[in-house]
């Protein structure tokens, strides 16, 4: 019966997520529509990169989200390890595949952008290599979460991985500054301000917010699904126990 009492807390999450989800999803949808409109119709081609610049409007938001999501995994992991809050590990477990998806998008769209502009699909420079490593770390996190019969052990192992791998996040960010890379330096987050013309900022920021909204929408859905299936399991266990 102790198992069922653990769900008393998440009931609060259920109420909150039920109330928030339609709003977050709705705003995300609007942001995507606006973002895509600006990205495809209401922004100019770049003076040198032409219309390939439109790939930036999905590539860069995905990159920002893949770093944000991994940081989320590390923080949630730490909270779970230190304070043992069950929602912490659950959010990490729910977030990891989303982050892996974003990272896959970064790598694939980057490749499609690199071929016409750089002349190659891939190079082993510091930026691209460290992002590929991030992708492997995500896959490792997903695997570890599911590798043990006791999900708590998997969650702890994944949390440790998230913390150990967290050093990769600043490495990725500063790779273009610390080493010679083919990938160019930062265009937005620099002391001198964005190196992007104002006509190209609306699609970039709209899509960035859309991706962020998407992350939270999907996160809420996945946690709700996880809570529901855990409840199913707990009820089954309780029914079995009662039947004996």
């Amino acid at each position: 019966m102790a198992n069922l009492h653990r769900f008393a807390n998440p009931a609060q999450f259920q109420r909150l997520s039920r109330a928030l989800l339609p709003w977050v999803a709705g705003i995300t949808a609007i942001l995507f529509v606006l973002g895509l409109y600006f990205a495809l119709f209401a922004s100019p081609p770049d003076y040198q990169q032409g219309d390939t610049v439109r790939i930036m409007y999905v590539h860069v938001p995905s990159a920002w989200m893949s770093l944000f999501c991994y940081t989320f995994l590390a923080v949630a992991g730490a909270v779970g390890l230190i304070w043992r809050h069950p929602l912490a590990f659950m959010s990490a477990r729910a977030a990891a595949p989303i982050g892996a998806g974003f990272t896959f998008i970064v790598l694939a769209t980057g490749s499609l952008w690199g071929k016409p502009m750089w002349g190659t699909w891939w190079v082993w420079d510091a930026r691209l290599t460290s992002v590929l490593i991030l992708f492997f770390l995500y896959l490792g996190h997903i695997a570890l979460s599911r590798a043990f019969d006791d999900p708590a052990r998997g969650a702890k192992a994944a949390a440790v991985l998230a913390l150990v791998g967290a050093v990769n996040v600043p490495i990725i960010k500063f790779s273009v500054d610390w080493w010679n890379t083919l990938h160019q330096p930062a265009s937005v987050s620099r002391l001198a301000g964005p190196a992007i013309d104002s006509s190209m900022l609306p699609p970039l920021f709209l899509m960035a917010f859309a991706f962020m909204g998407y992350f939270f929408t999907l996160l809420l859905i996945r946690i709700r699904a996880d809570l529901a299936s855990r409840k199913v399991q707990a009820l089954r266990v309780a029914a079995l126990a009662a039947a004996e």
Partner: peptide, 18 residues
């Protein structure tokens, strides 16, 4: 053996660049 182009971090429309 191979030549790759490297571009900077600036993004501008053609009119602004001109």
């Amino acid at each position: 053996a191979t030549v790759l182009a490297r571009h900077d971090e600036n993004y501008l429309p053609k009119e602004v660049a001109d």
